[in-house]
Design a protein around this nucleic acid. Sequence first.
DNA 1: TGCAAAGTCGCAGTGAGTGTATATATTGGT
DNA 2: ACCAATATATACACTCACTGCGACTTTGCA
Lengths: 203, 203
Amino acid sequence: MGLRERKKLQTRRAIASAALRLFAERGYEETTIADITEAADVSPRTFFSYFPSKEDVVFAEIDERLAEVREGVARRPAGETPLESMRRIVFEMIDAIAAAHGEYGAIQIQLILERPSLQARALKRMHDLEQHIVERLTELSPDIGEIDAIVIAGALVGGMNAVIAHCRAQGYDPDATREAVDRALAIVEHGLGSVPALTRPVP
Amino acid sequence: MGLRERKKLQTRRAIASAALRLFAERGYEETTIADITEAADVSPRTFFSYFPSKEDVVFAEIDERLAEVREGVARRPAGETPLESMRRIVFEMIDAIAAAHGEYGAIQIQLILERPSLQARALKRMHDLEQHIVERLTELSPDIGEIDAIVIAGALVGGMNAVIAHCRAQGYDPDATREAVDRALAIVEHGLGSVPALTRPVP
DNA sequence: TGCAAAGTCGCAGTGAGTGTATATATTGGT
DNA sequence: ACCAATATATACACTCACTGCGACTTTGCA
């Protein structure tokens, strides 16, 4: 890797960590681009050649993990059923999240949970992942119906996202999360009809 | 309803329809708040006493329908199973969407689909609805587990949202949508394991 | 009619994000 | 080591969304 590329990465990290540190110290809205670039010792204009917006800097690390998950989606051992592939992908995602839980991980989650606009962007990322899964799914099983693939990806990502978001909001205990995800996969796999409470009429 | 309230509603509609018309004519980014307020014959400052942001004006009508859906969630006949309630709610949502498909409905969808930031906000709305369903679900069946309720709502909203978004993107034929939603509900209800293509290993 | 509340407006300001021209640093080739 | 091509950083000027505030107008009610 050349000097130019190394410096670029260095600057990117400097901006990102300065931003997250300031967000943690004085809040998201209270931190301006000028503050961030001053702390990172670059010009304000430079910020935008590394991140398209102030919000994107929060997702920098998360996006890296998400890219790894997408790679994992492509890597599929022979003989694996699509459902098993899905299971594997979800567990890879959990590991990816756990890996992101160092240093600024907690701050990112906190920011996302308390800022509606950041929450919206996080959901958008999940939606993009969902579309990626639809593509892989139709590639994996060409005979699957279009609607079926869309519903499956939607239900899966929707369900997984809901439990994981809940677990993260609760402090993110890895074991509890793993257990919750197991339960979630079971429900989605065997159907909502398999939950007794849902088929029992209420007075 | 007094004169004041009537005028307020009138102004609100004037701003909303002027905005949507301009968005359709010259594009979202190309339309400024000043353009909208000029067309609606109010001061630029007034815009923000009706809508918190430029993006929110796109969702004005949609939010009204969503509020109706939430009311429908609360209205639950005795003897209905939670699963039946869910089915009813989803079909009410489809009707609500169909009702919104007059005048500016198509423009709203087009804008949301092509602007990532609007798409993110739309997903946020679905997420809020999801949380509302979680609350109702735990109210409906107090013995249901917390994780279970979260997964069920997530999978349901995720799956439904995915099919409906797909159908709307395809032009929104009511019959086709109804059929697709039926299929989606069947998959979610009976589980992903009930889809043959998902349990068959690929070479 | 008169008064309080609500709504409207103009104005001045902040801060995100963009286009552009200029300066500086890095690279690969000689 | 030098040069030319290229990538990157910066300064400057700008647009536009959005906010706070004080003045003014309209409406609802006694």
